[in-house]
Amino acid sequence: MNVVSFGGGTNSTAMIIGMYLHKIPVDLILFADTGGEQPHTYEFIRVFNAWLEKHGLPKITPVFYTDKDGNRLTLEEECFRSHTLPSIAYGFKKCSLKHKIGTQEKFCNHYPPCVEVWKSGCRVNKYIGYDAGETRRIQHAAAIDEVDKKYEKHYPLYEWGWDRAECVRVIERAGLPKPGKSSCYFCPSMKKKEIQALWENNPELFQRAVDMEHNAADSLTSIKGLGRKWSWESYHDEFIEAQELEKAQLTFDDLFPEAPGGCLCGAPCGCYDG
C-alpha cells in the first residue's frame, strides 16, 4: 500500500510525477486541507487532478480536521473562535500537527486498505517529498522513522538526487504550471513579498488576515501580529505610506527643467552660493 503525502507545492508534485515515470505504484494521494489554502493551490489541484486522471493515477483525496461531533473545523475558524493566531506565530507547530499530519493519520486509521496492511503485520509505505537539498530534515526524521511501526517512510526525490531546480524542470516537462508556494493565506511564515502579493492579488483574503489580527489583539502579549514582531496591517500601512511619499517626491529636474542635473548656477552639486 503506497500512500503519498501531497503538500500542494513543487516537491510533492514532482515526486508524484517521478513515481509515475519510475513506475512506482500510487494507491492513495492525501492532501490535508486547512480550509485556508492559497487560491492558487486549490486551482493547481484542479489542474493536477486532470493530469493524474489522464495518466491513470488516483485523484487527490482531501482530508480535513473535524471536531468531536464530526463537523469540519477549519484553521481559520479555530483562530477566530479562540481569539488567537496560528500557533506558529507563537513559535509552535500545533496547527501543522493538528490540521496537516493529524488529519492524514486519522484518515488512514479508518481507510480499509491501510487497516488490512496493518492487520497482516506489515507497514504502509508513505512517500514524502523532501528533495536532495534537505539532508538535515531526512536525518532528523531518521530516528523517528526507524521506530515507526505503522509506516515505512520513503524519500524518492532525495534518492533520485532531485533538487528544487530539477523538481521545477520535471513539472515543466510534464506540461504542468508551477504550483506556487503552498501555505495558508494567513501563515505567519510568509515572507514580506508574499504578503504584498496577497494584498495585491487577493485583497479580500488579506483583509481576513488583518481581521484575524484584530480579533486576537486582546490576547497578544509577546507578539504584535502575524509577523510576530510586527503586524501585517502595520507592514501594509507603512509600505503604502512609503510608496505614496516616494511618488510625491519632486526631483530638482522636475522643479527646474531649465537646469537639468544641478543648480540654476550650473553647479552639479547644488550647493554653490557664489
Rank of each mutant, 00 (worst) to 15 (best):
5 S>W: 03
11 N>T: 12
18 G>K: 15
24 I>G: 12
25 P>M: 03
29 I>R: 11
33 D>S: 03
37 E>Y: 02
37 E>P: 01
38 Q>F: 13
41 T>P: 05
43 E>T: 11
49 N>Y: 08
52 L>N: 05
55 H>Y: 15
56 G>L: 04
56 G>H: 06
58 P>K: 07
65 Y>C: 05
67 D>T: 00
68 K>R: 15
70 G>N: 00
73 L>K: 07
74 T>E: 01
75 L>Q: 01
82 S>D: 13
85 L>P: 04
86 P>F: 04
87 S>Q: 03
87 S>N: 04
88 I>W: 11
90 Y>M: 10
90 Y>R: 09
93 K>Y: 02
95 C>A: 06
96 S>I: 02
98 K>D: 00
99 H>I: 02
99 H>N: 09
100 K>H: 01
100 K>Q: 00
102 G>W: 03
102 G>C: 01
109 N>L: 15
114 C>P: 05
117 V>K: 10
118 W>M: 14
119 K>T: 10
119 K>N: 14
122 C>W: 14
123 R>I: 08
123 R>G: 12
123 R>C: 15
127 Y>L: 03
129 G>Y: 05
133 G>D: 04
134 E>I: 01
137 R>E: 02
141 A>E: 14
146 E>A: 11
147 V>W: 12
152 E>Q: 15
153 K>M: 12
154 H>F: 10
158 Y>D: 06
159 E>V: 07
160 W>N: 01
161 G>P: 07
161 G>Y: 02
162 W>C: 10
166 E>W: 02
167 C>T: 03
170 V>R: 00
172 E>K: 10
173 R>K: 11
176 L>F: 10
178 K>T: 05
179 P>V: 04
180 G>D: 00
180 G>R: 05
182 S>F: 05
187 C>I: 01
188 P>L: 03
195 I>N: 06
197 A>F: 08
199 W>K: 08
199 W>M: 05
201 N>H: 15
201 N>M: 13
210 V>M: 02
212 M>I: 03
212 M>F: 09
214 H>V: 13
215 N>C: 13
216 A>E: 06
219 S>F: 08
222 S>F: 14
223 I>T: 05
223 I>F: 08
224 K>G: 00
226 L>W: 00
236 H>W: 09
240 I>T: 08
244 E>V: 04
244 E>G: 04
246 E>N: 10
248 A>T: 06
248 A>I: 04
248 A>M: 08
249 Q>M: 12
249 Q>W: 09
255 L>D: 06
260 P>S: 01
261 G>D: 06
262 G>K: 07
265 C>I: 07
265 C>Y: 13
266 G>T: 00
270 G>R: 05
272 Y>P: 02
